[in-house]
């Protein structure tokens, strides 16, 4: 019995006011100082699901996972991309120093296959990270995935739509992402283990367009603005 309690306390599944901040679930640093601070320095939970709720691609969501992706590829474990909405662009990934031989892209046709694939990838010991765009998921499916991630001690990040924020989810970490501008991303923690959800915070994500001098003129003005009309 005490073993069970110890496990529960150690995993930080039960929030304890008295010992707040002592229990540390296993996790990976996100590589973003602001986000780490927002998550009380726990980062991406290992052996649990994380959800990123976004409406459309291209607001900087991949910048959030790039440091983790790099870390996983360097540790010679596999990173699976399951049903990405667009093509992960190889030159850009190579430019971000990600070892492409550790990246596997999987496309599935049937929804049953998607869940099956996710579960198998999560349970395998060679997997380090699973990025998935699963579409609609029932709560019990997420629960199954959560158990699979626990069994394989892997990091799994699901990208889902923002309207699913209201739906309850067994995921350990839920982030709602909203676009700000080209160098900033608004992140709101909807749920995390061992802590309260936080206020929306703004995350600096530069480097999407490469390293630039902030003062240098960025666009050559020309006739193109007019030709759009």
């Amino acid at each position: 019995m005490s073993d069970l309690l110890n496990t529960l306390i150690h995993d930080a599944r039960v929030w304890q006011g008295r010992r707040h901040g002592l229990a540390r679930p296993p996790s990976h640093s996100t590589g973003h100082a602001t986000l780490d601070r927002l998550l009380d320095h726990t980062g991406w939970p290992v052996g649990a699901l994380s959800e990123c709720l976004i409406d459309r691609p291209g607001i900087g969501e991949l910048q959030l996972v790039l440091p983790l992706l790099k870390q996983v590829a360097e540790s010679e474990r596999m990173a699976f991309w399951i049903n990405p909405p667009c093509i992960p662009y190889a030159p850009a990934l190579a430019g971000a120093n990600i070892a492409l031989e550790q990246v596997v892209v999987i496309h599935t046709d049937a929804p049953g296959d998607t869940l099956w694939t996710l579960e198998n990838c999560l349970r395998a010991s060679v997997t380090g990270l699973v990025l998935a765009w699963p579409g609609n998921l029932a709560s019990r499916d997420i629960r199954r995935l959560q158990l699979a991630a626990e069994a394989g001690r892997n990091v799994c990040i699901l990208f889902r739509e923002r309207r699913q924020a209201r739906q309850s989810s067994p995921a350990a970490l839920r982030l709602e992402l909203e676009a700000r501008d080209d160098r900033q991303l608004q992140v709101q923690v909807l749920k995390r283990r061992g802590g309260w959800p936080g206020q929306p915070a703004t995350l600096e994500i530069d480097g999407r367009l490469g390293q630039r001098e902030p003062s240098a003129p960025r666009v050559i003005t020309g006739p193109w603005a007019g030709s759009m009309g």
């Binding site: 691609p57 291209g58 991949l62 990405p84 909405p85 667009c86 093509i87 992960p88 662009y89 030159p91 850009a92 990934l93 190579a94 430019g95 971000a96 999407r208 367009l209 490469g210």
Partner: peptide
Amino acid sequence: PPPRPLWLL
């Protein structure tokens, strides 16, 4: 390399 997007349509 020149800046390239991570998603290609």
